[in-house]
């Protein structure tokens, strides 16, 4: 699995959520994803970047890699923060669960939008969320 394209964005303010969305919209479009998949990917970015901003006191990063496999292209997004961590990941993944003032659709919804999702978290240390979306090469 080779990575041709890679980059990162700091998530330190509310405005950085928009920056992350714009960067990934361009990257995903350039990688050949269609309009609907680009919208799915950018929406997932928005949810995950906001989680970092809201729950991790702006100590996070988003990193992205374009993955290439025979016949398909993928975008890997890794959100890392040094926030307070998630006490119960299974509970956080449930639809309707929220510790913030939101709809509680964030993590469970992101899982439906993306093809792969992995969360690791340690209380007091931080959280890493990795998501991947695959698309066929046209």
């Amino acid at each position: 699995m080779g990575c041709e394209n890679t980059g990162e964005c700091h998530i330190g303010s509310e405005g950085d959520i928009v920056t992350c969305r714009k960067v990934i919209r361009n990257v995903a479009t350039a990688a050949g994803f269609g309009m609907t998949d680009v919208t799915r990917i950018v929406t997932a970015v928005s949810e995950l970047a906001r989680n970092v901003y809201v729950h991790a006191e702006s100590t996070g990063m988003m990193r992205w890699n374009i993955l290439q496999q025979p016949g398909k292209v993928g975008i890997e997004l890794i959100f890392e923060d040094q926030g307070k961590g998630i006490a119960d990941i299974d509970q956080a993944m449930e639809a309707g669960f929220t510790t913030a003032n939101s709809m509680g659709m964030g993590l469970s919804g992101v899982k439906r939008l993306m093809d792969e999702m992995l969360i690791s978290s340690e209380l007091g240390v931080g959280t890493t969320v990795r998501v991947v979306k695959w698309g066929r090469i046209k």
Binding site: T36, T39, R40, T43, E47, A95, M103, M105, S108, G109, V110, R112, L113
Partner: peptide, 8 residues
Amino acid sequence: ITATELGL
């Protein structure tokens, strides 16, 4: 499509 999949 995305909003529905996300559950909004």
